[in-house]
Amino acid sequence: MKALLQRVSQASVSIENLEVARIADGLLVLIGIEPQDNQQSIEKMLHKLLNYRVFADEQGRMNHSLTDTQGGLLLVSQFTLAADTRSGLRPGFSTAATPAQAQELFKQLVTLAQQRHSTVQAGQFAADMQVQLINDGPVTFMLEV
């Protein structure tokens, strides 16, 4: 499982010009699911997302986590993160989970996140989404479990 984590001052997801999710300060996380991912992958990734220290403390150092700040978490499924880009000029998607597997695991991730964190929003799996964000910093990390 791969996650592109972005610290944001705001982020939203729209589908056909209708906003379906929005957060203020927090994390926008694009999620790529691979064939080997499972419940253990979800647990590990969610632990990282909630506890990864990317928010400033009183001295301006990245010492606070999403759990510490109680910021928003916006999860968006993005199968292109799992693409094989090692050769050629066109991505291959044999390294991505099947749509059925990815949808189930993404749903489990969102449900578990909602159980463990107060402000969780999500995009719609497999929809043509427009994602808007203001990256704060900018701060962006690629996480893998």
Rank of each mutant, 00 (worst) to 15 (best):
Q78I: 03
A126H: 09
R53Y: 05
A56C: 08
Q39N: 11
L133E: 00
F106R: 06
A56E: 11
D128T: 07
F141Y: 14
V145K: 06
L5K: 03
M62D: 08
Y52Q: 10
Q121S: 05
S118A: 10
A3E: 03
Q130D: 15
L49V: 00
T85C: 15
R86G: 13
L81V: 12
L81S: 12
A100F: 06
A96W: 09
L4K: 04
Q114T: 08
G123H: 06
D84T: 14
E144I: 07
N38G: 14
L28E: 02
S12P: 12
K48I: 03
D25S: 02
T98Y: 08
S14W: 14
E58N: 12
L66I: 00
Q70I: 05
K2T: 10
T67F: 00
V20I: 15
E144L: 09
L105W: 05
R7G: 05
H64M: 14
A122V: 03
P99I: 05
D84Y: 14
F93C: 08
R90D: 05
F106S: 03
Q78R: 04
V131C: 15
A102M: 03
D84P: 11
E34T: 15
N51A: 01
E104N: 09
T95L: 13
L81Y: 09
S77Q: 08
L133I: 00
A3V: 07
L49Y: 01
Q78T: 05
I134P: 03
T119P: 00
G32P: 09
D25R: 04
F55H: 06
T119D: 09
V76M: 04
R116V: 00
K48T: 04
S87V: 10
Q103K: 13
G26Q: 05
V145F: 13
S12W: 13
S9Q: 08
L18N: 15
A82S: 15
L109C: 02
V76R: 04
R7C: 07
L28K: 03
E19D: 15
K44W: 00
V20H: 11
V76P: 02
I23N: 02
L89I: 08
Q78V: 03
A102L: 04
K2F: 15
V54P: 05
Q132W: 02
K107N: 14
N63Y: 10
R86M: 13
K48F: 04
T85N: 13
I15E: 13
K2P: 08
